[in-house]
């Protein structure tokens, strides 16, 4: 059994068939690039994994668990999700991070704001005072990088990265992709960006 499995997925959206008898298997620690053309439901596919989009038919398996209303929380807690338009919770960055680690499901994780400040902000080329800023005053690119840090700190098995390099300059893009691909995780990337080419990702097109 593969680590992630989509079997016979049927999904209609606004009277259009997005997926019909769609099947996909992804192995543990495999790094996959979804680069199907726009409108083919790449984002819907990853949102199905999180239970935000529920297929009309078919089954989704994550680490041997079938995705249902009962298991959705268990499955969500295996996934880090970062998207292009990630809406980071509102407030001061420091409080937002603390708030996320206070969620019941995250309390077992050790969270150290000093490491965030002294290490991660540098890695992501973010200014030192970012933690004291209000999320609403940050640029889209800055929010995206914060979401990525948050995703990494949550230490999940599966990473879903939906168009996260959009709007960043090439240097920063390359730096982020180098960093991400260095991790031993099951990584699902949704992107059209050339920066992922020739990096050994399995390309999935439909």
């Amino acid at each position: 059994m593969a680590y992630l499995e989509f079997s016979n997925i049927q999904l209609n959206y606004q009277q259009q068939t997005i997926f019909s008898d769609f099947n996909l298997k992804i192995e543990r620690n495999e790094k996959t690039l979804f680069c199907a053309p726009s409108g083919r439901g790449k984002t819907s596919l990853v949102k199905m994994l999180l239970g935000f989009v529920v297929p009309d038919r078919g089954e989704i398996l994550v680490d041997g668990i079938t995705l249902t209303g009962e298991t959705v929380n268990q499955i969500r807690s295996k996934i880090s999700y970062v998207s292009q338009d990630t809406d980071i919770p509102k407030g001061i960055v420091r409080d937002v991070f603390e708030g996320v680690f206070k969620f019941e499901a995250n309390r077992h994780l050790s969270y150290n704001p000093d490491i965030l400040k002294n290490y991660w902000l540098d890695v992501m080329s973010l200014p030192k005072d970012t933690l004291e800023k209000n999320v609403e005053t940050l640029s889209g690119g800055e929010r995206q990088r914060l979401a990525l840090i948050l995703g990494i700190l949550l230490d999940r098995e599966i990473w879903i990265l939906d168009e996260i390099t959009t709007g960043l300059d090439l240097e920063l893009k390359t730096k982020m992709v180098d960093l991400i691909l260095g991790y031993d995780k099951t990584i699902l990337v949704v992107s059209h960006d050339d920066v992922y080419q020739n990096r050994g990702l399995r390309e999935v097109i439909w």
């Binding site: 935000f52 969500r76 990630t86 809406d87 980071i88 919770p89 969620f103 019941e104």
Partner: peptide, 22 residues
């Protein structure tokens, strides 16, 4: 109106109560 932010909180493993708290 803030469905994306709400879903993001769920994705961060907030339960329904935690995710809707704001």
């Amino acid at each position: 109106q803030n469905e994306r932010e709400y879903q993001y909180r769920l994705a961060l493993s907030g339960n329904q109560w935690e995710s809707t708290l704001p």
